[in-house]
Amino acid sequence: MQPDPAPDSARQLRAIWISDVHLGTSGCRADHLLDFLRCHESEYLYLVGDIVDGWQLKKSWYWKQSHNDVVQKVLRKARKGTKVIYVPGNHDEAARQYAGLDFGGIAIRQEAEHHTADGKRLLILHGDEFDGVIQYAKWLAYVGDSLYTLILELNRGFNWARLKLGLPYWSLSQYLKHKVKNAVNFISNFETILAGEARRRGFDGVVCGHIHKAEVRDIDGILYGNSGDWVESLSALVEHPDGRLEVLYWTQMGQPAAALQAQTAQADHKETTCAS
């Protein structure tokens, strides 16, 4: 594990939300997440579900050193005083049986509440509870997960060929999710439902994960935030010291996009430098 940057070189934030890391899968970009965590410090760190992919690990064991390094980095942050709150999702639902307990300085909660610096009260949950497929047709969710894994594998080979031809990275799964009409409608309905739940319970906003689409926007007066994923978009939701929420993409911050595309296509693992 590489040494962390000096404290004064790390970007200081009030809160960081990370979700859908999917440790335990070949699609997880643990190396880039590790670099992001090294380069950003915060008072609060929320792990908003699907951090470890129990579904895939049950099928076959896959666990690289970089996956260990991410776990160790989170534990180190907790030891150094960062308030780490882990809200399990559907892929790591086994951890939900420990909700209400603390392990190694990490608080495991079914859901959480966060107060921003500017006074907003936010509901924190993974979001699968409001996904009808997960709740009422879980077998279909397993099928979809297997298809998504296959698409990621195809995408890796496809982009290796594009790289050889000098073409930019192109995400097949992102295209399918955000351009196909039914997928777009599902995402829109999911966001609206989550905002409605926050309003019903008296919150000013909600932060979730689950759909791998990073977002910060207002939905009928409710602040909706989604922390995205660390499989493709390499995104996190953060709160600045003034309370402002923003989505950060490591693809845009950590290194030139072309270099990241080359790493993604070739599954390379090069050192990433901290953003200034």
Rank of each mutant, 00 (worst) to 15 (best):
Q261I: 00
R76F: 03
D131A: 08
L33P: 07
D268F: 01
Y62T: 14
H91R: 15
L125D: 03
K138Q: 06
S173T: 12
L33T: 10
A258H: 09
V84Y: 03
R29A: 13
A94H: 09
N226M: 11
E191F: 04
K58E: 13
L125Y: 05
H115L: 15
E93R: 14
H40K: 06
S26M: 11
E197S: 00
E215Q: 14
I193V: 15
D69T: 05
E129A: 14
Y224K: 05
I16E: 02
A236M: 08
A236F: 00
Y249E: 05
Y148H: 14
L150W: 12
W17V: 10
Y46G: 08
E129T: 09
K80E: 13
D31G: 15
K213G: 00
H212P: 08
L75Q: 08
E246Y: 01
P7E: 00
I106D: 07
D4S: 07
A112R: 06
G54R: 13
E246C: 04
L101Y: 11
V21G: 03
L23S: 09
L152A: 12
G24F: 06
A95I: 02
G228D: 03
G166D: 04
A198P: 09
D145K: 14
K164M: 15
M1V: 01
A99S: 15
I219P: 04
V206Y: 12
G119W: 10
F130H: 13
G144P: 09
V184T: 09
T192A: 15
K181Y: 10
D53K: 10
R29E: 14
L163Q: 07
F190T: 05
A107V: 02
R199T: 04
V84W: 03
E239P: 02
A117Q: 13
V71T: 04
W63E: 05
S171P: 11
D69F: 03
T149R: 14
Q56K: 14
G100N: 05
R79I: 01
N159P: 02
W250V: 01
I219H: 05
A275I: 03
S19G: 15
Q135I: 04
L140W: 03
V238F: 03
R14S: 09
A257K: 10
W61V: 15
L33D: 07
H32I: 07
T82R: 02
Y142F: 15
A214F: 02
Y142L: 12
N155F: 00
G49K: 10
Y86I: 01
Y62M: 10
Y44R: 14
Y169F: 12
R162Y: 04
G127K: 07
A107N: 04
K181E: 11
N189W: 11
A262T: 04
S276A: 14
A265H: 01
A30K: 05
D4L: 08
L234D: 05
E191I: 01
V184Y: 12
D128P: 08
A99P: 00
G100W: 04
Y142V: 08
G104M: 08
V247R: 03
R217M: 06
G209M: 08
S227D: 08
E129L: 11
